[in-house]
C-alpha cells in the first residue's frame, strides 16, 4: 500500500506527533511495509467469525460506588511539569 504525504499528515494529527521531514519519509516506508505485511490477514476468510476482545468468559462485578482512596493532591501535583496551588497549568488554549 502506498502511503501519501497527506496520509502521514493525517495520521500524525491523530497520533499527536510532529514528525521531522526525515521521520515522515521513514514513517511512510515503515507504515507501507507493515500494512503490506499485515495484508496477509486477508488470505483468511473470516466471514461469520465474531471479532474477539476477551479470551475467556467473564461477567460484570457490581459494587457500591463509594470513594475508597484518600486525597493525594499534593503528591500528584508534584509530578506536574507546571502547577499552581491546586491546579495544573497548561498553555493558552485559544
Amino acid at each position: 500500500m502506498v502511503i501519501t504525504d497527506e496520509t502521514i499528515e493525517y495520521v500524525g494529527i491523530l497520533a499527536k506527533l510532529e514528525l521531522s521531514d526525515d521521520e515522515k519519509e521513514q514513517s511512510k516506508k515503515d507504515l507501507s511495509d507493515m500494512l503490506d505485511y499485515v495484508g496477509k490477514l486477508n488470505e483468511l476468510d473470516t466471514s461469520g467469525v465474531e471479532p474477539m476482545s476477551h479470551t475467556f468468559p467473564i461477567s460484570n462485578v457490581m459494587r457500591e460506588d463509594e470513594v475508597t482512596n484518600g486525597d493525594d493532591k499534593e503528591n500528584m501535583l508534584k509530578n506536574a511539569p507546571e502547577s499552581n496551588q491546586d491546579a495544573y497549568i497548561v498553555p493558552n488554549t485559544f
Binding site: 493525517y10 495520521v11 490477514l41 473470516t46 471479532p51 474477539m52
Partner: peptide
C-alpha cells in the same frame, strides 16, 4: 503511527476488526 492508522475511520474494519476476527481463529 501504525496503531493510529489501523484505528482511523475507513481502515478500522479492514485492519483492526479483521485482526480481532483472526484472534478468534
Amino acid at each position: 503511527m501504525l496503531g493510529s492508522f489501523v484505528l482511523s475511520s475507513g481502515y478500522y474494519d479492514a485492519y483492526y476488526v479483521k485482526a480481532l476476527r483472526v484472534k478468534a481463529l
